[in-house]
Simulated assay, not measured.
Amino acid sequence: GAPGAWSSVRVLPAAPAAPDRFRFCHFGDSGVTAPAGWVRDGVMTVQPDFVIIAGDLSYADGDQPVWDEWFQQMQPLMATVPVMASPGNHENKDANGRGYLSRTTHFEPPGARGWYSFDYGRMHFVASTGGAFAADLRLPAEILWLEQDLARAALRRAAGEIDFIVFFNHFTIWTDQEGRSPNDPLLVVLLEQILLRYGVDLVVVGHDHIYQRSHKMAYGRPAENGYVQITQGAGGKSMRGFDPISEWSASAERRYSFCEYDVEPERVMLRTWAVDDTANERAGGLELIDELSIGLRNLVFRNRAAASPRGSAELLPDIEAIRRNTLARNRRDCPADGHTHR
């Protein structure tokens, strides 16, 4: 703020110590467009306990006043509920994430650098950079941390302390949009193998400017013991189309929208709400375009997923190749001339 320009003082209520039931929302790829305002208003309508933004928040791309514009647009939401976030490829364009990292007190725990975890009720959340900031050479540390964190979470789930594990970052693991990032098969395979080893229930992502939900899947195919990927990149920036839709896809919509998750003991209800009509013009209210109920994994699966964490020798033999590929991806997606906007 500055003289005459300070915002109003707002107070967010503390969460209950151990809520049995709660609601959170998720979207990505926001920007400062009119549809981003529609999504913000829609999220406020359902009154969640907190919000996850899966990367590409402001699209400032190095132009720092755009961050101010984005925060002004998001202020009605962020002044009422906590917002947790993960960085995307456009955050990387701010000097390898400095624009985002200088503002993480708004949406990350103290000391986080784009990767962190937290519990809410009986659900464990794990945030990752997906390699967005690979140039800062912390990717090996993040991968080892992810392995340790998910191993502890899986053990706690087997012991009955939590019910679900949610992984979120910007990038999709699998996509039906040809040519889209991550485009680093080694990193995708490594991350997915970790998620499957510890039985992650939900993979919550953005990046593709559409809505798409998978069946339970593993390695690009439907699998009963796999995870459900929720791609929600329809947060307002722009809208993209689909390439031929794969067999793992259960729902696909080209609508500006957000996801609402109602969480109760042993069950999660997903509802996806469009804020526009089929021509992507603003609608008069919310339209339900998808829903899914997800139950607690069976005891055999939970016990099997409570595996011991592995060390760097087993996890990181290809780390130099992963680092090179991921750096090349980041430079390709956000080149210095600023002409690529994905």
Rank of each mutant, 00 (worst) to 15 (best):
A127Y: 01
S214C: 02
I210C: 02
W248L: 13
G42Y: 02
L144Q: 03
S58V: 01
V43F: 01
A151E: 10
G338V: 07
M78C: 08
A153H: 08
P3C: 08
A283K: 02
L196A: 15
H26Y: 00
G1L: 04
M239V: 03
Q64G: 00
A305C: 13
Y256T: 01
S249Q: 04
Q193F: 01
V263Q: 00
G62W: 10
W115S: 02
Y120I: 04
G99C: 01
Q64F: 14
P110K: 12
V83S: 00
D277Q: 09
A127H: 06
D337A: 10
D94N: 07
G111F: 03
L296F: 14
K237W: 13
F71L: 10
L315S: 12
G241P: 05
D337M: 07
Q232H: 02
V9E: 11
L296R: 15
S7M: 14
I294C: 11
F107K: 09
M44Y: 05
V205Y: 08
D176T: 01
V189Q: 15
A153I: 05
T80Y: 00
G295Y: 13
P244A: 13
R255T: 02
V188H: 12
L187K: 08
H209F: 09
E281F: 06
M217H: 08
A17N: 04
V166I: 14
V189S: 14
R40F: 12
E260K: 04
